[in-house]
């Protein structure tokens, strides 16, 4: 069985039309805008009920690292994020308490999403897409604080009427030691 990694590095991703490419990109841009507009509840509604939202640790290891290892589920290894819909809801509710000091006053963020590559999952009925995208998230907070996070997302998008739901998101944040005081943002 080919993996999402292999399929999306094929020179021509088969079965994905320009129309689909356009729809997926527009969806990702709209999703990013919800985050940058602080509309977290609305953003949360884009998640499928079976969402797994995960950011594994990026390790410095001796042997040649394979990207598959980086994305793969690693059992009980700790992660930066490892959420299902319920715990993502907890994160969103925290922002709604009016007492979330780490984000109140809120940070200014800008999610730049690019390099969108789409492939069809092998076992899909045609309503799901494997989507890889790169991101730069810029955060500016209070007077002068700046954080810049770059990385890649491995998403599973599922058709939902005229839009999509996010059924899986694996985030590879390109940092070993996280260089900021917290990650009070979504990627």
């Amino acid at each position: 069985m080919t993996t999402q990694l292999e399929r999306s590095t094929a020179p021509i991703a088969t079965g994905v039309t320009m129309q689909v490419q356009h729809e997926v990109e527009q969806f990702l841009y709209a999703e990013a805008q919800l985050l940058d507009d602080w509309r977290y509840r609305h953003w949360f509604e884009l998640m499928a009920d079976d969402i797994r939202y995960r950011a594994p640790l990026r390790k410095n290891r001796l042997r040649r690292q394979r990207l598959e290892d980086e994305v793969a589920d690693r059992g009980t290894e700790m992660a930066l994020f490892d959420d299902d819909k319920e715990s993502l809801d907890v994160r969103v509710m925290q922002r709604e308490t009016g007492k979330f000091w780490a984000e109140d006053p809120p940070s200014r963020t800008r999610h730049l999403i690019s390099n969108v590559r789409i492939s069809l999952p092998v076992d899909s009925a045609g309503d799901e897409y494997d989507v890889r995208s790169n991101f730069i998230v810029y955060r500016n907070r209070l007077e002068t604080e700046v954080d810049i996070w770059a990385g890649e997302r491995f998403d599973l998008l599922r058709r939902d009427g005229a839009s999509f739901k996010i059924a899986r998101r694996t985030i590879l944040l390109d940092q070993n030691v996280v260089l900021s005081k917290n990650l009070s943002v979504f990627f």
């Binding site: 950011a55 009980t76 700790m78 992660a79 930066l80 994020f81 490892d82 959420d83 715990s87 907890v90 994160r91 925290q94 979330f100 000091w101 780490a102 984000e103 209070l142 604080e145 996280v178 900021s180 005081k181 917290n182 990650l183 009070s184």
Partner: peptide, 24 residues
């Protein structure tokens, strides 16, 4: 593991607020 990832760590719902204090 899941509970600790939610509350502790760089993105932990509890710890993000400590970072805000210590950094400022």
């Amino acid at each position: 593991q899941l509970s600790s990832t939610l509350t502790e760590g760089a993105a932990g719902t509890v710890e993000v607020d400590d970072g805000e204090n210590w950094d400022l």
